[in-house]
Design a protein around this nucleic acid. Structure first.
Lengths: 384, 384
DNA sequence: TCATGCCGTTAAAACGTGTCAACCCCGCAG
DNA sequence: CTGCGGGGTTGACACGTTTTAACGGCATGA
């Protein structure tokens, strides 16, 4: 690759280590800007700007000349100057709850793909489930003058409201909202909880465990409500479900929960975890303790992350259209950015789907011939 | 939370839907800038700027007055204007190979944490192992005028050179470099490959499989070299190791590789995968086909992602200091940004560590009492 | 021939911040 | 009382782009 192929990140010329910032003399410009391009192409700076932003308004011949000058000089538009003058950037902020959870990574992939297609860059940040970190990082977003923000709020969206008051469009990610003044994209977590626990009960479980994270997290609260609803629908007393709350939503916390259960001596027939990471942690400790899954304890997780299918005992889980979540949220956000007037806020709500694998299949159940069964409201997705 | 607690993302005031961009008349300023703060505090704009950037140069009393004005007006510094004038931003770009690989997510966590501590924002992008995407996204970084770039290159760093010619500091991530004109942070993949295959051979394997991604990826090439070196050291012929190259580094590709192996009829004694995702895919297909791991085929992966320990058969893997990789790379980058002259480029090279779990443990081996054994050059890390 | 549009181009004025030389004020030594 | 020094503060300009009103040239129709 010795020739300078098309489209590479170009470099103007090799530059000395230290150069006075403001010298446009004979030594070559410190940075090549729109002005240099204009001069090189024999037009005015305004025309170059037009070529960049409204190519249709400039005569083909001139345009070609300018474009060639851009290539020859290796000009790269100065995003900050553009943002400053135009009043908006080509950057969106993405704030997730937990970067090490594959669920959010998958969401981030959707966001990144969609943003990239529209020429936007993604500013990524993790709140690590901390309001204080969320706050601090959103402030950084505000300073960077992001065009819009996608956020999985830790506090029901109060911080997000602050942004909206600044006229920064916000789309709530994985968080439904009753309010019509904003977009949101979410999956019905109540239905998901109901689906999971309903299945466990239908499979004959009489006592349940529910391992969950901080109840302040909407995801946890909703999945719990769904679980309780299923319990009620089956005519079971509320005491039939023991709740174990752990401070985080990762595998380590799941292990802790399982150890607590084991220490108590009596295990429930089945355990529903608010999260696959929790479930994997629970499973690991149970298996190490010699507890059979699902024979002794059935297990269902949530999110259906890629690794659940490959777990020690393939994990049943509630599947969400994760990648789509990120994609659609981004599309909505950019739509609102491009046309704040005409934009109609939407609250998108997906329906989850229960993927039944070995961890919740009754031993010797009649349908055990199939490796994987999925039920739920949504249509069928392609197999992973 | 009805009172306006300290430090929340503040909003100047509720604003109407559409406002003329340039009207600083009686209706209140479109945006509150350094000028408004100055007026409110009874000082000049220059002083406000000094409060923001060199607080020590301004008298305590004045500073307090300005800071209060900032709070009262909910001023947020305009990052773009700052960048434009100062000539550099408070943003770093991070380009990874694959966002859905937990290895890179973990790296990203380290980057995000370190950057956040220094008040920097992270622009995230995935090249998805495509040169063209890498190129396009690096161009976006360049437009955004990132302060520096962290990149896991797909092409040995040629694109990165382009950036450096533009005086944008670059640190190579998970990619060693012999050249002294740049920083790099990496783990010795040759040693890792040698460690893994050496172990498999020591455990008695006579025939091997090596499942790997595109040989253009340095990681794959190096791990392969290490594997071959171990083979040679054991006095085995090169033909003893069958290589299976798949187009991607994910679980699906691993499944494909395993199916190819099964179709051929004869399985090797052991398989080394260039990646845990590949290994998990391989394992899944093998187990479904009734092949015992490790009794029939031993298996070792690479990266030691969190989920490997929870796999159907806990997966042996080559562990890397993943989070640290991101953290240290970021520290180096910011150090170079802060002081380009005084900065001495460093090529950091970590040593990997083999974590032996069930997937590569000989059935009935003498040491089978321990649940997990780890060997390698590095010191001991805390247990996960 | 001259007025009339129209298209393409231009010059100049912003956008909000950082920088730096100049300036002011006050205390102190001469 | 004057000159001097220095810390604090000021004001104006520059950063690179977008935008807008104005302008020039050309073709058309009267």
């Amino acid at each position: 690759m010795s020739t300078d192929g098309t489209g590479e990140v170009p470099a103007p010329r090799r530059s000395a280590r230290r150069r006075p910032a403001t010298r446009n003399g004979a030594g070559g410009p410190a940075t090549v800007g729109i002005k240099q391009v204009a001069q090189h192409a024999g037009v005015s700076p305004g025309t170059v700007s037009n070529v960049l932003n409204r190519p249709e308004r400039v005569a083909p011949a001139t345009r070609a000349r300018v474009e060639q000058a851009i290539r020859e000089l290796g000009f790269v538009r100065h995003g900050s100057a553009s943002t400053l003058r135009a009043g908006h950037s080509r950057t969106v902020g993405l704030m997730v709850l937990d970067l090490s959870n594959p669920f959010f990574t998958e969401v981030a992939r959707g966001v990144e793909d969609a943003a990239s297609e529209h020429g936007y860059a993604v500013l990524l940040s993790s709140s690590a489930e901390s309001e204080e970190r969320e706050q601090r990082n959103l402030r950084v977003f505000a300073e960077q003058r992001v065009r819009g923000v996608l956020v999985t709020p830790v506090d029901d969206g109060r911080q997000a409201d602050r942004l909206r008051e600044r006229d920064i469009p916000v789309v709530l990610l994985d968080h439904p909202t009753p309010r019509a003044n904003q977009c949101s994209v979410a999956v019905d977590d109540v239905a998901g909880g109901e689906l999971a626990v309903g299945r466990l009960l239908a499979d004959g479980a009489r006592t349940l465990g529910f391992v969950t994270g901080p109840s302040a997290l909407r995801q946890c609260a909703d999945r719990r409500r769904g679980a309780l609803r299923a319990l009620r629908a089956a005519g079971m007393p509320r005491e039939a479900m023991r709740e174990l709350t752990v401070p985080a939503m990762n595998a380590r916390a799941g292990q802790e929960a399982a150890r607590r259960l084991l220490a108590d001596g009596t295990l429930p027939d089945a355990i529903f975890c608010a999260n696959d990471l929790l479930a994997l942690g629970v499973m690991r400790v149970l298996l190490q303790a010699g507890v059979q899954v699902p024979a002794d304890v059935a297990l269902i997780g949530y999110d259906d992350i890629e690794f659940s299918a490959a777990a020690a005992v393939p994990l049943s889980s509630v599947r969400q259209p994760t990648y789509q979540l990120g994609r659609i949220a981004t599309e909505l956000l950019l739509e609102e950015c491009d046309d704040p007037e005409g934009h109609a806020h939407q609250q998108v709500m997906f329906q989850p789907e229960l993927v039944v694998r070995e961890s919740s299949r009754r031993v010797g159940a009649e349908d055990s011939g199939l490796p994987e069964i999925s039920v739920g409201a949504g249509g069928s997705e392609e197999e992973r």
